[in-house]
Design a protein around this nucleic acid. Structure first.
Lengths: 120, 120
DNA sequence: TATTATGATGTAAAGATTACAACATGGATG
DNA sequence: CATCCATGTTGTAATCTTTACATCATAATA
């Protein structure tokens, strides 16, 4: 665990906004100007392999980072681009895949969030 | 509807393997050598907007195309890279997002498929 | 202190997708 | 039938995200 890795992890724990790598990079660079974006990518790999964070890809564009690893769904607003969490109370893993080893699980819903829907 | 669009749509209806844009391009270019990959991208946009096909992003790398639009889940094998469909019998959209307009719905499961798990 | 292993940095490359301009086509209109 | 216009296609170039790789820094160890 290096200062850079701790910085990325702390940022993701404190900012539950599903930021992109670029967002994290810009935020942390303010404090440590020598930070490299490659380090962010490497750190994301390391933290993902360690099971501490998750990488989600929803909609187009960049990957989003998520410090919450408990199963939950992601709502992607196609207007503002924000990602919102939601519970998965009534959704369970399928039993219909014999012999398949399931390791990760994510539910993606796309649409328009409440804030953007109101503006119409 | 042009020959190119019909070709892409037919290919996706007949090949339920969640091919990439590149795969579709290579397959169709055999019959019509003048085909451009840009046309595939444009056509995918057109067909997606028309609600005829879906674009799924699961795991890393390229987008995968899917001619099946009825709700179903996608299992991504991290070993062979194949994408498998599964039913969503016991998974329903969450009711916990008031004011949100839900338009699309996808369940992603990552892991190792039966064929690859057997080889261990 | 010298050595070694690991991580960080920055540049360059790769890969996927999009933007854009030129060309082709087909239908509508006079 | 000729012309015009709108739409679609093509190919190149640019963009954007991510990765590869070589170099530098650092910390632990012998």
């Amino acid at each position: 665990m290096t200062p850079q890795r701790i910085g990325v992890y702390r940022y993701l724990l404190e900012n539950r906004t599903h930021p992109t790598v670029e967002t994290v990079y810009q935020a942390l660079k303010a404090d440590s100007p020598s930070l490299s974006k490659t380090t962010i990518y490497n750190t994301v790999d390391t933290l993902t392999d360690a099971g501490l964070i998750r990488v989600i890809r929803v909609g187009e564009g960049e990957a989003r980072l998520d410090g919450e690893i408990i199963d939950h769904g992601h709502f992607f607003c196609r207007v503002c681009g924000n990602v919102y969490d939601f519970d998965l109370d009534n959704c369970h893993l399928p039993q219909s895949l014999p012999g398949f080893r399931m390791e990760g699980f994510d539910v993606h819903v796309a649409g328009v969030c409440a804030a953007c829907a109101e503006k119409d």
